[in-house]
Amino acid sequence: MLSLPAGVRACLFDLDGVLTPTAAVHAAAWKETFDDFLRQRAARGGEEFRAFDPVADYDEYVDGKPRVDGTRSFLASRDITLPEGQPDDPPSRDTIQGLSARKDEAFSRRLGDGVQPYEGSLRYLRAARDAGLRRAVVSSSKHCAAVVAAAGIDDLLEVRVDGIVAERERLRGKPTPDTYLCAARMLGVEPEAAAVFEDALAGVAAGRAGGFGYVVGVDRVGQADALRAHGGDTVVRDLAELLDRPESGTGR
């Protein structure tokens, strides 16, 4: 019924882009942050302004990563070096930490408009619960708890590993598998008995690197081939497709 290998006993879900459509909110917040910074930098240096691409740049440099890592990664792609700064740098400061705080501020402002889970993901979560599978959400965002609550799916998830937990436990961000491995431990299952559900290239790579039993790529933006290349065992456009597949010998 769930289209998973018979040995899988737990489902580990990314949040943004898998359970909720907040990936688009994140992309818009990153674009606002970087475009403002790049526009001012270009004006000061007499250079051409080149905007942040909310699809290509987002997927390649920031999606699935801790916020400061995303900031650092994108700036490096433009050969821009900024001082690291301090974690409490204000959003107005042009440091890695300051730009990261600016993005966080932009995202929080947009989050107030509300969050609705993907209908197919809601169906899949309920089916996984009814089938007796353990369930966790794994996200690099420190807003994970607020998004899950706003989407009304907190009762369907047993464990949360987010940016707050990662910082406390000193877990490395995706594409390393640390956060997913932590979620599996918290659920009491071995990696090979867990399935990872990811829409980010870095997240799919993390699932493959962690030796998980099954990696499902969720293609919301037309990157199915890239998701497979980074380690997806299967790729779907929506989790409902897994429920609607005909029964086979390899699925539940």
Rank of each mutant, 00 (worst) to 15 (best):
G45L: 04
E167N: 05
Y124N: 13
P117C: 05
P91C: 10
S121Y: 07
D36L: 15
R39Q: 15
S108F: 03
D88G: 07
E105G: 05
G152C: 01
R41M: 02
R110M: 09
R44V: 02
L38I: 05
Y124L: 11
L125P: 14
W30A: 11
A29W: 01
G163K: 07
P83R: 04
Q40W: 01
S139P: 06
D59F: 06
A166W: 07
A150V: 07
K103W: 07
I96M: 02
W30Y: 15
L75W: 03
T95C: 14
E60T: 08
G45N: 13
Y124W: 14
D94P: 14
L156W: 04
P90Q: 14
A43G: 14
K65G: 15
P83V: 04
P54H: 00
G152T: 02
D94V: 05
D94Q: 10
Q116F: 03
T95Y: 08
R110N: 07
S92W: 01
L156H: 09
L75C: 10
L157K: 01
P66V: 13
D155E: 03
R168V: 10
E60A: 11
P90V: 08
T81H: 05
P117H: 03
V159P: 12
T71S: 14
D59S: 12
A146E: 06
Y61N: 08
A27Y: 08
E47W: 04
G132V: 01
A51P: 14
E60V: 09
P66C: 09
Y61P: 04
F34I: 14
A28E: 13
L75D: 15
H26Y: 03
T71H: 15
R110K: 10
S139W: 05
V165G: 12
G85D: 05
S139A: 12
D35Y: 07
A127S: 08
Y124F: 15
A28V: 12
T33P: 06
R78Y: 04
Y61F: 11
G120M: 09
A27R: 00
V68Q: 06
S121L: 12
V165W: 00
R109V: 11
A51V: 05
D63G: 05
D162V: 06
V159Q: 04
V161H: 10
S140E: 00
Q97A: 11
L82C: 10
F52D: 00
P83F: 06
L38N: 13
R93I: 04
D36W: 11
P91M: 11
P91Q: 08
D63P: 02
R44P: 00
A127V: 01
S73M: 07
P87Q: 01
S77I: 13
V138T: 14
A136N: 12
W30Q: 03
I96A: 13
A151S: 10
E84R: 04
R129Y: 03
E158H: 00
P87D: 05
P87K: 10
G112H: 06
D59P: 06
S77T: 01
A29K: 09
S100Y: 07
V137W: 06
G45M: 14
P66F: 07
